[in-house]
């Protein structure tokens, strides 16, 4: 629970959606993130860029609770996600509470990670039915709508393995959206795809960005896409934010030397 807000669930308009406070992450002795601080506002779409190994994936995985936080705190709508401050102590939250907050977050993976033992429809309705408690019919109707949005209505009963990579990724996006998350995490969702399949997936995401006010945190190497959809770009290096700016500024007039080098290399 939030410690100081009056309205739990965070209906106050100025409460940031995500707060990272002194976040640090070590793998063994390897410090990947060290005292990281940033916030993301409601409905804001933020792109993380930076050289390989700078910790971009790690940040998304920490938010999705796929990694254990070594130090610091993450707040979602003011509620602590995995660890909370109790006086001077840092306490781990019980699984039940973590799950409650995690439901507000969805993620799309680089490798799609569809369940191969389920059809497209079953993949999409699995969590709405068994986590949100929707009826099967209700969930199925919504799945059909979502598949419409991603242009795969006719694949509703197909098996994931019979789909192309691009199609699988669009199903994965539909699956994440079916949970109606407030936050969507996208980690290089097109980098496992053949070049000719990238366009469709990005088009779907542009559409989502245009039509919803879902908060997005994305890692991508598609700079044009990043510029089109995001409100803000954060440049990472060695586990820290070294520069942040609006996309047109970041991509055209970066100030930091490392950013210039990095953008020159990728653009």
């Amino acid at each position: 629970m939030s410690t100081d807000t009056t309205s739990p669930g965070g209906s106050t308009g100025d409460q940031p959606r995500i707060v990272m406070e002194d976040v640090s992450k070590k793998f063994g002795k390897n410090t990947v993130l060290d005292g990281l601080n940033f916030t993301v506002a409601r409905g804001e779409r933020v792109t993380l860029i930076g050289p390989s190994g700078s910790g971009k994936t790690t940040i998304l995985r920490l938010l999705m609770t796929l990694e254990d936080l070594t130090g610091g705190y993450i707040y979602i709508d003011g509620d602590p996600l995995t660890y909370a401050k109790r006086g001077n102590r840092r306490v781990k939250l019980p699984n039940k509470e973590v799950t409650q907050i995690r439901k507000r977050i969805g993620m799309v993976f680089q490798q799609f990670n569809l369940f191969p033992n389920m059809t497209v429809c079953e993949n999409i309705i699995e969590a709405p039915v068994h986590v949100l408690g929707q009826s099967k019919d209700e969930a199925r109707a919504k799945a059909a709508d979502l598949l419409d949005q991603v242009g795969l209505r006719d694949k509703i009963d197909a098996h994931p393995t019979s789909l192309s990579g691009g199609q699988q990724q669009r199903v994965a996006i539909a699956r994440a959206l079916a949970m109606e998350p407030e936050i969507l995490l996208l980690d290089e969702v097109t980098s496992a795809l053949d070049p000719e399949l990238v366009g469709d997936v990005l088009e779907v995401l542009r559409e989502v960005a245009r039509k919803t006010d879902i908060t997005m945190l994305l890692v991508t190497h598609e700079m044009q896409f990043a510029q089109d959809v995001s409100h803000r770009v954060l440049m990472f290096d060695e586990g820290r934010v070294i520069e942040e700016a609006k996309p047109e500024v970041m991509f055209n007039n970066p100030t930091h030397e490392r950013t210039k080098q990095f953008l020159q290399a990728v653009l």
Binding site: M64, N113, L114, F115, P116, M118, E126, A127, V131
Partner: peptide
């Protein structure tokens, strides 16, 4: 693959459901 567990976590599926619907069938 680890990704199957992670996808199940990202969907907040309860542990028993992850076993029954995702892991055991595969």
């Amino acid at each position: 693959r680890q990704g199957q567990w992670e996808a199940a976590t990202a969907l907040s599926l309860p542990r028993s459901r992850v076993w029954r619907a995702v892991i055991i069938p595969q």
